[in-house]
Computed example of a mutant assay.
Amino acid sequence: MTDTAYPLYRTLPGPIHALVLAGTFPLFLGALLSDLAYYNTYLIQWSNFASWLIAGGMLLCGLALLFALVNLLRARPRSGRPLVYFLLLLITWGLGWINAFQHAKDAWAVMPLGLALSAIIMVLSAAAAWTGLTLPRSGGVQ
């Protein structure tokens, strides 16, 4: 009789984790596009759209951060891959928080820092989604 070792948990993100993680990128991308539209047209409604998109992106990023924390706590001690994923999400969420405060200002005071923050956050959310959806979870086959 053979003895087979099974991982303690999934090696791929679950469906809710993947949905939440993949949802952060389009929301932060929409915020960047709204900021670009506001920068070019100075119609205040674009700034309002960006504020709501940032709030939605932060909500989903916070949920993905909780999943990443659980994954980090269940990871092997020497496995640095879940730590990179967790730190990317944490930095994305932290900068999103700063960007939300920036967008809470008067519409004319949002630029140019709001646009720069939105661009950085969009790149970070893309990197976090790529890392989270492609790296195997610890406990899987090496």
Score class of each variant (00 low, 15 high):
residue 42 Y to S: 13
residue 43 L to N: 15
residue 44 I to R: 10
residue 44 I to H: 13
residue 47 S to D: 13
residue 49 F to H: 14
residue 49 F to Y: 15
residue 49 F to D: 10
residue 50 A to P: 11
residue 50 A to Q: 07
residue 52 W to P: 02
residue 52 W to G: 02
residue 53 L to V: 01
residue 55 A to I: 07
residue 55 A to C: 08
residue 56 G to S: 07
residue 56 G to M: 02
residue 59 L to W: 08
residue 59 L to K: 05
residue 60 L to C: 15
residue 61 C to I: 11
residue 63 L to H: 09
residue 64 A to K: 07
residue 67 F to S: 08
residue 67 F to H: 10
residue 69 L to I: 09
residue 69 L to S: 09
residue 70 V to H: 09
residue 70 V to C: 12
residue 71 N to P: 03
residue 72 L to Y: 05
residue 72 L to M: 07
residue 73 L to M: 10
residue 73 L to Q: 09
residue 75 A to K: 03
residue 76 R to Q: 10
residue 76 R to W: 08
residue 77 P to K: 08
residue 79 S to R: 09
residue 80 G to Y: 12
residue 81 R to W: 09
residue 85 Y to N: 13
residue 89 L to A: 00
residue 94 G to M: 02
residue 96 G to M: 05
residue 97 W to H: 03
residue 98 I to C: 12
residue 101 F to Q: 15
residue 102 Q to D: 10
residue 103 H to A: 11
residue 103 H to I: 02
residue 104 A to Q: 01
residue 106 D to N: 05
residue 106 D to A: 01
residue 109 A to E: 02
residue 113 L to Q: 05
residue 115 L to P: 11
residue 118 S to G: 14
residue 119 A to G: 01
residue 121 I to S: 07
residue 121 I to N: 06
residue 122 M to L: 06
residue 123 V to R: 02
residue 123 V to F: 10
residue 125 S to W: 10
residue 126 A to V: 11
residue 126 A to I: 13
residue 128 A to Q: 12
residue 132 G to V: 11
residue 134 T to W: 13
residue 136 P to L: 13
